[in-house]
Structure formats: structure tokens, C-alpha cells
């Protein structure tokens, strides 16, 4: 576990989280949530938890983003906050 890389990825994770909840366009927010999940997956790999990493990559990054995009397609993309 290389602490410099760990620290850097954690900074990116926090930036992605804050961005995902503050962007008004819902589709962009969901894509940034996908990027958040991907950075988490890198974090798990770097910490040595590779089974958690590929579960997170396949399930949370791919399937969850797909579910969100499907729901936004069926509802609305605009939001007021």
C-alpha cells in the first residue's frame, strides 16, 4: 500500500463526491457518480482488496450507472438544485 497513491486517489474521490451532489444536470451527476465508483475501485486495488475491486467495477460502476441512466431516461433530466 503506497501511501502517496492512496492519498491522491482519496482526494479525487472527495472531489467526485462533492461534484456529484452539486451539479444540476442529473445525467452529468450520475456519470460523475460512475467516476466516483471507478476511483473507489482503484482504491480497493491499491489497498490489496482485489475481489472487492472487481465486484465494485462490475456491479457498482457498470450496473448501477446503467440503472441510474435508465431511470433518468424514463423520468426527467432537469433538476432545480
Amino acid at each position: 500500500m503506497i501511501w502517496q497513491l492512496d492519498f491522491l486517489i482519496l482526494i479525487f474521490v472527495i472531489i467526485c463526491a462533492v461534484a456529484a451532489i452539486n451539479i444540476r444536470d442529473l445525467l452529468s451527476a450520475v456519470i460523475i457518480l460512475g467516476a466516483f465508483s471507478f476511483f473507489m475501485c482503484l482504491l480497493w486495488t491499491e489497498m490489496g482488496a482485489i475481489d472487492v475491486a472487481f465486484t465494485e467495477a462490475s456491479v457498482a460502476t457498470a450496473i448501477s450507472t446503467l440503472l441510474f441512466v435508465g431511470a433518468i431516461y424514463k423520468t426527467t433530466r432537469r433538476s432545480k438544485d
Binding site: 463526491a17 456529484a20 451532489i21 442529473l26 451527476a29 450520475v30 457518480l33 466516483f36 448501477s64 441510474f68 431511470a71 433518468i72 423520468t75 433538476s79 432545480k80 438544485d81
Partner: peptide, 11 residues
Amino acid sequence: NLVKKLIGMNI
């Protein structure tokens, strides 16, 4: 917005 609440739950 309800979708933002769900994003928060995920985080």
C-alpha cells in the same frame, strides 16, 4: 431532488 438523495445514499 430525489435522485440527488439517492446519489447521497450511494456515497
